[in-house]
Every structure is written in C-alpha cells, then in structure tokens.
Design a protein around this nucleic acid. Structure first.
Length: 237
DNA sequence: AGCACA
C-alpha cells in the first residue's frame, strides 16, 4: 500500500497515444478545400518517393475530411514517409503524419485477414494491426517445428534477449532504414549490420520486453514481395 | 479534431 506518486504502471503494449508501425500512413491537417481527386494524386506522387504506394484513400465526408490514408507496399517506406513528411507544407498547411491505427483493406485482402463490412466494429477489441496474419502464423509455426532439423531448432529456441537477430532482409537495406523501422518502438539502442554478410542484422533494445514488442509486431513482415522478415532472439554470449 | 476502405 505504499503511496504511488503519479506513476501509473504503463501497459507494455498499446499505450494510448502511441501507434505501432503500420504499412498505412494516416495524414491529417490537410487542406479540405482540395478536391478528392487532386488530393489523391498529389499525395500519391508525394509519397511515391519513399516507396511503392498501393492506394490513397481520401474521404471528404463528415468527420473524414482533411485526412487521408496512404497505403504503402512496404513498412519501411511508410516509416520513412512518416518522418520526412511530418510538418510538410502542403497546400498551405503543415501535414501531420502518423501510423494508421488499423490495417487497410487492401493489405488485409492480400494477407487473408480481411473481414467484410458488418462484423467489424462489433467483433474484436483487438485492432486489426495487432492480429496475427494467417500466412505468417503458418510460416512461423513451420519454422518453430522444423521436421527433423536440430540446428534450426536450436536457433529458434533462443531465450528472450534484448538483442534481436534479423534474417531475410533485402540486399538493398541499410542501417538507416532499419533504424527508421525500429526507432518507432520505445527503447531502441543500436542497429548493427555485419560487413560482408547480407540479409541479416542485429537490433538491440534497452530491455528484453522492448525487444519482444518489436519482434512481435514485425515478425513475418513483408519488407518486399520476396523478403519476409524473420526475427529471433540473438544468442547470448 | 476527426482513423476509412462498400
């Protein structure tokens, strides 16, 4: 019963005001005098410099005006765009960028988690972006129980560690991109790549729990159509 | 301020 002076224990995940990385960028404070068509195409070209854009959704109806959703093909692109476009002067107003709270339909349709209209609001309290994607689950389970390969098992059964081991990275990726990607999670300490070794990297957090959050969110993420991120805990020395 | 997609 010791007095707790204004220090509410924060839940490790999903704190209010903090949105986890999402492939879709949420933009607001947009000039609502711009037509939907112009807004869509202008945002499309503006955002394409950071990577492939799958869709731009802009509604002018009611509470949705002045906002837009830009769906990126890759999370890294959304991440970079979020930072580079923060406060960007667009038709006379600085845009505000954030990660979208939910998964876009285009993405959900792609990974098989799409739920048609009605059931949405009623069903789950867990936002779509936090729900595991079926393909990814199948994949990681297949990897967690490899048929007969003991080396694999040793690798995946590492105890929790504040250092993450990343595999299947695209060749084009670099430390900056990984920092951008992981900086969104609290507690990032360092990103290391290994000279001469492509496809892998180490990402260190300040605590095991912080590393675990990042791992859970980004596990199985499609960095490119052919690079599905794989994250395990690094071996302890 | 406001987190949609039919």
């Amino acid at each position: 019963m010791a007095a707790r002076v204004g220090a509410p224990a924060p839940a490790p995940t999903a704190r209010p005001g903090i949105t986890l990385p999402n492939q879709t960028l949420y933009i607001n404070n947009l000039n609502d005098k711009i037509s939907k068509q112009v807004l869509r195409s202008e945002l499309y070209v503006l955002c394409s410099q950071f990577g492939g854009v799958l869709d731009v959704v802009a509604l002018k109806t009611g509470k949705m005006r002045g906002q837009a959703f830009v769906v990126f093909q890759q999370l890294t692109a959304a991440s970079v765009a979020l930072q580079k476009l923060q406060g960007f002067e667009f038709y006379g107003k600085p845009m505000r960028t954030a990660f979208c709270r939910t998964k876009s339909d285009v993405i959900a349709k792609e990974d098989g988690t799409f739920v048609p209209k009605q059931k949405r609001k009623t069903e789950s309290h867990v936002p779509a972006y936090k729900q595991p994607n079926k393909k990814q689950m199948v994949e990681s389970q297949a990897e967690a129980q490899p048929e007969g390969d003991q080396d694999m098992q040793e690798e995946t059964n590492q105890p929790i560690n504040k250092i993450l081991f990343l595999e299947r990275l695209p060749d084009e990726i670099n430390v900056e991109m990984l920092q951008t990607l992981f900086k969104q999670f609290p507690g990032l300490a360092e990103v290391r790549m290994v000279p001469g070794k492509t496809g892998i990297a180490f990402v260190e957090f300040e605590s095991d729990a912080q590393a675990a959050t990042a791992r859970d969110t980004l596990q199985g993420f499609k960095l490119t159509p052919t690079n599905t991120l794989r994250i395990t805990y690094a071996k302890k020395n």
